[in-house]
Write a protein that binds this DNA or RNA. Structure first.
Lengths: 209, 209
DNA sequence: TAGAGATAGTGATTTTTATAACAAAGGAGT
DNA sequence: ACTCCTTTGTTATAAAAATCACTATCTCTA
């Protein structure tokens, strides 16, 4: 699995394929064609095969892919066979929702720490994790060996928190704050900007036909 | 403003430029260069100018852009000078958080309706909006002239809800459920898949250097 | 008003990504 | 074993997007 440059769009699609395969496996389906995967995801079958081709040959010509086998490969490719430790920074509305959200509590990802500046929130229990004080952020990161920090603090605090997470050794950051963050090149950053999503819809609504 | 195909990446960047300009205006800055915008967003200045060039000429050579003027243009380009009516479908953890989240309550966007199947939640007040029954979804969409539906129901319900929204006349959908949705070609769909975001981080963590 | 410095706008080029088309390979039926 | 059917893997092509490099034009100063 020594691949040098995979388009991000490919990685996103692979994630979705893996989810669909997971559903297929639950449904007891044993084999699937690229065409079927493609239809369920809304892309072309060529796209599916191309995406997979970055990583190897997983199918049988004339037959398709074995669902459980391909899911196994995708799990490995996506790194979901490892355990990732998460910390949620900011236990406000959004942070709490994420802490409790099912989509975040799935195989491979484990929320190990939640922290907040508000002393009224500190001590509360969110989905089995106690909210800690923001003061001990660095300690939490080290103790729980946090790989991924999830930022749900206000924009004004986001860069400060990010710097602290980075210094404490976090390898990746998922940023929900409406703030452009600067991180060193070896730290992975993804932004989920809710306002931007609405603005893009607004643009499309305004310009569509 | 008759433009036929704008890259989605461009639209996303324009949204971010508009936020940065908004901050600059608040800070009392009057003019800004493409280089400065670029630095604050983390792209190249050529990229900034190219993005703007899709829509016209907004700057002065040798000088830069007037902050308030460019912000005005971007506001129009992004359709933020209009009012968009939102409905949140599913008042669980995530739906409630979005209803209360500041980033969603900003100029141009107005949450007009929230609904849920759970009769225990119906009647609750979320940020000034009463939660209604899912039964009257269509009525709500029509009464409040909803343009954008935000889906925060479980995956198993997402397609059904989407179909109902589309039939009721919603023009765009922002989907937070981990489910690939099918919509007619004239309906705009954007997906915010939290699990996929984590999986992409997992991939990058696994393959990085 | 001429020249220097700065910065926008834009055409050319390169890089990246997606699409299309087809050859290779497996399985099933005869 | 041969042929047909299916579907993968891959190569070729096209499309899209980003980068680069240059020209045009503005302001300011001497």
């Amino acid at each position: 699995m020594k691949v040098y440059k995979i388009p991000e769009a490919t990685v996103i699609r692979l994630s979705i394929y893996s989810r669909q395969l997971s559903n297929l496996r639950k449904a007891g389906v044993e084999t699937v064609s690229s065409e079927e995967i493609a239809n369920s995801v809304g892309v072309s079958s060529a796209q599916v095969r191309k995406d997979l081709a970055y990583f190897g040959e997983f199918g049988t010509r004339g037959v398709g892919y074995r669902v459980d086998e391909l899911l196994g490969y995708l799990t490995k490719i996506l790194g979901l066979n490892k355990e990732w430790n998460l910390a949620i920074i900011g236990a406000g509305k959004l942070g709490s929702a994420l802490a409790l959200y099912e989509g975040f509590r799935q195989r491979g990802f484990s929320i190990r720490a939640i922290c907040d500046v508000d002393q009224n929130i500190v001590g509360q229990n969110l989905a089995g994790v106690m909210v800690d004080s923001m003061d001990i952020l660095e300690k939490l990161v080290k103790e729980h060996d946090i790989n991924i920090g999830i930022i749900t603090v206000p924009a004004s605090e986001a860069q400060k928190v990010t710097d602290r997470l980075v210094d404490a050794g976090v390898a990746a950051i998922l940023n929900f704050s409406p703030q452009v963050l600067k991180v060193p090149p070896d730290v992975i950053l993804r932004n989920v900007d809710l306002a931007v999503n609405l603005k893009v819809l607004s643009f499309n609504l305004s310009h569509n036909r």
